[in-house]
């Protein structure tokens, strides 16, 4: 089953009178439960594609189907709601709120949900999430008291708190050393395998991309190649977190 389908996605930026085409017609499909790496040299357009996939930006032309819904023309508020419900984000620089405990960082997206959770429920869910990423003993630590790998795991817990079907990771290991990078990647693989979360990573590191089953290489605004490695078929069952 296709979770994400892109059809001729184009993105053109206007710099005064000059149009700068960044994406020139991208069509691709990502199945549910897939572990995808999006690679390409800098300036190739992979970040722009990532922003469009992550509903942070709108394509100039083309169709974007997410879970059977055409979403390329949604308004900013509708996209915000969609991001809250269906997408999780992990960033290169973690983007945790300083002087805010791990627990509160993780619970933060819950304050923007439509159905409102009581604060005790929110705490409970955030605690569960932190336990899942192995930080059950660091609930009240501030980001400054955590190592880089731990911070990124807090960020992952935050991304997963609303049980989204898709997790976007923008250079998730860019600020980590090789050992903690490996830990984070293993966590991604585990989440992908055990919970069937579709994970889309943007990376320029071939080693990181090596963990993915589907590798999409972007070059100059077009897909250079899209290979799916063998291995176990991704789970397509219901997401159970």
């Amino acid at each position: 089953m296709e979770l994400i389908t892109l059809h001729g996605i184009e993105k053109t930026y206007q710099m005064g009178d000059i149009s700068v085409p960044v994406l020139k017609g991208i069509s691709l499909a990502i199945r549910q439960g897939e572990l995808v790496a999006l690679t390409g040299s800098s300036g190739s357009g992979k970040s722009t594609l990532m922003n469009i996939l992550g509903c942070l930006d709108r394509p100039t032309a083309g169709e974007y189907w997410l879970e059977g819904q055409e979403i390329s023309q949604l308004t900013a508020d509708e996209r915000a709601l969609l991001r809250n419900r269906k997408l999780g984000f992990v960033f290169q620089s973690f983007n945790l709120l300083a002087r805010t405990s791990a627990l509160e960082n993780v619970a933060m997206p819950l304050s923007y949900t439509v159905e409102e959770l009581s604060s005790s429920e929110a705490r409970k869910r955030a605690t569960e999430m932190l336990c899942r990423v192995g930080l059950g003993d660091r609930l009240d630590h501030y980001p400054s008291q955590l190592s880089g790998g731990q911070q990124q795991r807090v960020a992952i817990a935050r991304a997963l708190i609303n049980r989204p079907p898709v997790l976007f990771a923008d250079e998730p290991t860019g600020n980590l050393d090789s050992r903690t990078s490996e830990e984070v990647l293993q966590m991604f693989e585990q989440l992908n395998a055990e919970d069937g979360i579709t994970i889309i990573m943007v990376t320029h590191d071939p080693k990181v991309a090596g963990h993915a089953r589907q590798i999409i290489r972007i070059e100059d605004g077009l897909i250079l190649d899209n290979t799916t490695a063998g291995g176990p078929t991704p789970q397509t069952g219901e997401i159970t977190l």
Partner: peptide
């Protein structure tokens, strides 16, 4: 600014 961006990424609307 980054915090605002983050909040928007996880689903905060302009009015939030």
């Amino acid at each position: 600014t980054r915090e605002i961006g983050l909040r928007m990424a996880v689903g905060a609307r302009g009015r939030d």
